[in-house]
Structure formats: C-alpha cells, structure tokens
Design a protein around this nucleic acid. Structure first.
Lengths: 158, 158
DNA sequence: CTTGAAATACATGCGGC
DNA sequence: GCCGCATGTATTTCAAG
C-alpha cells in the first residue's frame, strides 16, 4: 500500500536527508548541495512527494514554550479484543489533540501505548479521568511521566 | 530557558497551526490565510523563529516505504542511578539513529523508555544485543512491538 | 542530465496610516 | 501596531543540446 519502488539512488537519499533536516531549503540550495542542477533535483523531489515517500513538511514547535510542560506515556488495557472495541477506542483517541501517538502493541499486559502532552498535572488528570478512562472497554491504565527526553529525532535513519 | 513571553495572539496561533500542517507555505500564502499582509506576517514568523518557539522545519518521511517495517518500544532499567551512568547511557543512545526517542521516565520499574525503528526483527536483534544491552549499567530490558499506529501527530495542541 | 533564458512569484524594506 | 507599494532577488518552467 504505502510502499512501492524502493529505487533510491544516492541523490534521492541525499535529498531526503537534507529535507529531513530542513524542509524549507529552496530547490536551488538543495540542488547545489547534492551536486545536481535545479531541474532534475526538483523532478526528484516531486517524484518523492508523489510516491508518498515524503509525507509532508511540518514546523516543529517548542512544547515548553507553549506551556505544554507535561509529557506522559499511558499504557491501556482493554477488556475484550474485538474489532469494534478497538475501532471505537481508536476513533475516540484520534479526536484528542493531547494524544500525540497511539500504538497498538504487543509485549506485556497492555494493548495500547499512548504518548500524550498536556500543560500540567491538572490537564493530565482531566485527560485521563474525563476522556481516556471513559472510553468503553478500557479496563486498565498505567501512566509514566517523562522527566526529560535526552533524545528526540524526527529524522528516520537512511 | 526555552521559555519567554507567552504572548501569542490569534495571529501567532494561526501561523503556528498552519506551519505545523504545512511548513512550506510561502509567506504570501500564510499572510492570505491569516488575514494579514505579508510584511507583518513575515515579522511574526521571524519572531517565532528567533524566540525558539519554532524549532525548525522537517520533512516527514514514510517509514514503511524506506523499508523500516518494525517499530518498538524498549523499557530500560539501570543498575545504579548515578549521573555518570545516566550521562554515558544517554550519550551512547544519542549515537544510534535507530533510536528515535529516549525518555527518562517515572512510573514503574523502568528508568528509560526508548522508541526505535528498524528494518525487521533481525535489525532489532542487532540493535538490542549488539548495542543497547552492551551499554554499561543496563540491567533490564523489556520490549514491546508496535503492531499498528492508529494515530501519530507531530502537531502540538494549541 | 545540463544549460540558459523568460516569466513568475517571492521576500524585504520603506513611507504612510 | 498595520498596510501597500517598489525593488531586487530567487524560483520555476521551458526550451534546446
């Protein structure tokens, strides 16, 4: 589905690396740095966008400067593992902007792992008690608070 | 440190929202959409960049299309909680591009939570056995594999 | 793929409001 | 603080080699 031709030569890889680091590079800059002229460079970027390899360009914001001082991971257990339970849970979760990530996982007693970000403990409490634990089928919840994040990349390894 | 004046009016918020969705918007487009002329719009963007509220602009890539088919979370326990142990661990971890995130957490028996991405189980095994478990002080490791990620945002809630 | 030229769109600074 | 214009620059898009 999301895949296709894994035909990436060194120019494509270079393009991806550079755009992962700075999405606002102009085509000229990009062409210069990969050692190609602007025309083929732009064609490659367009192709990478069209094939879905580049999914988009995002500004990364400083969470703390926005007052989002509390990050946490929440492990969720569900009562039954039926498709409708899961679908409903996922739909609800998708509507909460505080939930940055939701992963269905294997490994221990939990079914989902959520990464959330809120202003403070009060915001966390509201998210947990008024939203997450009220979703049908949620039986267990276990929270871990983030003290610090020594590393956090958006760039995938090439 | 990273904070400062939380003085964000509706224009600033709009700018942040739009750039979070599409970092490649031109200043003109941006100005149009927030209902301001290009000059003050650009001034605001620059200010948001200078104050560190906007940390950068990144291209988001499709991991699966790059052959990165296995994502996992790894919980790490350390033998002793001394600064040098932690510093050394964090420095090592920072040098592994497969580790997308490393969080120092509270909550259960683990000290760190890592989010990693690799090609397949073989790549995971190598990362775990040849790199992570060899770091001094690592005593416990518990892995959870991601089956699917129904939601994954980069945009922070405004 | 490259070069080069034309047309377009852009960022930026200044005066006026 | 904002606007709108003017200017110089950068960018895209074609053509042809």
């Amino acid at each position: 589905m999301t895949d296709s031709t894994p035909k990436l030569d060194r120019y494509d890889r270079k393009i991806l690396q550079l755009l992962q680091a700075d999405a606002r590079l102009s085509n000229q800059e990009l062409a210069d740095r990969i050692g190609l002229s602007p025309s083929p460079c732009l064609r490659r970027v367009k192709r990478l966008e069209d094939t879905g390899l580049i999914e988009g360009y995002r500004a990364m914001l400083n969470a703390r400067a926005l007052g989002l001082k509390l990050m946490a991971f929440i492990q969720i257990s569900m009562d039954r593992h039926t498709p409708d339970r899961f679908d409903q849970f996922e739909a609800q979760i998708a509507s909460y902007p505080e939930v940055l990530e939701c992963h269905l996982i294997t490994g221990h007693d939990a079914d989902y792992l959520l990464k959330v970000i809120v202003d403070d403990m009060d915001g966390f409490q509201r998210l947990l008690l008024e939203k997450i634990t009220r979703i049908e089928g949620v039986t267990g919840v276990h929270s871990s608070f983030v003290l610090k994040s020594p590393s956090s990349r958006t760039a995938l390894p090439l």
